[in-house]
Amino acid sequence: MSGPAFGYCRAADAGDALIQGARPGAAFLAGGTDLMQLWKMGVATPDRVVDISRLPLSAVTADGSRLSIGALARLSDVAAHPLVSRDYPLIAQAILAGASGQIRNMATVGGNLLQRTRCPYFRTEDLACNKRMAGSGCGALAGQNRQSALFGASAACVATHVSDLAVALMALDARVEILGLGGPRRLGLSGFYRLPGDTPERETNLASGELITGVSVDSGDRFATRSTYLKVRDRASFEFAVVSVAAALQLEDGVIVDARLAAGGVAPMPWRLVRGEAALIGRRPDAPAFAAAGALAVEGAKPLAHNGFKIELLRRAVIRALETVTAQTAAAQTIGGDA
């Protein structure tokens, strides 16, 4: 199984990558785990791949309270990095909840953020999909839509974003560092992704030929002892989320002063549950507060024929994630920590 032949070149440096990547038909190759699948399925048909995997963009560094992760850092290296596992366990957990050991050794942070949906209509060449072929229709809308979106979808596309890492990064207000021929720029993750609207083929606000150089998170380490990534899936490992929740709390004097909730598997992008967050601020981390957050988290969900079960699943996942976070806090206090 393979797609049409393509050419190959290795970028000498970031500037060279931008020049090579600006050519029509060019596609950046980093870990290749998604691009190679899409090529074999006939979904991606690059004329030439520009191998960026050896560019020096794989460092994980902390500068004051800012964590920076290079776009070409391999997922397994990020999860195992002491800065991440100690101060950003939410990121490590989300990474380790995804894919398999082999894939995590290959896949990069930038590629993970850009991975395409697993909607079967997108990944099957002869089915209707506006994202793959504009104007062909959305097969999932009236077809098999168990995994489709509850939020943010359109009449043109109901596909979900499937990255686990992106859900954790969304909860932590991460920013995406971008390099183009005009210079560097930075986008918040929520402004990086686009909702499908009438143009589901455009999933991000990256311009053609622009390169992700890294992601950064400011002050996320204050959630280090009070965060969790809960992934609900159809089998225990190596499976995409049916629903996932990243939850993080900051407490002062037993009261929630900051709360972060983001969900995966329910929208065309990692989905911040802002109303659920708001319901937690100023309250004690107890069952009534969590129930309120869960109820507000699912407000506005628009189910299709087969995915309505995900509304209740998401509500419960939010509550369970918050319970897990609180239990961590209690455990840390028991062993004498200052959490």
Binding site: L29, T33, M36, Q102, I103, M106
Partner: peptide
């Protein structure tokens, strides 16, 4: 699965040139 520089990878998704 093979090892590349000591790390396990899926060789079906690995572009040889890389």
């Amino acid at each position: 699965t093979v090892l590349a520089n000591g790390r396990r990878i899926k060789s079906c998704l690995a572009l040889a040139a890389a």
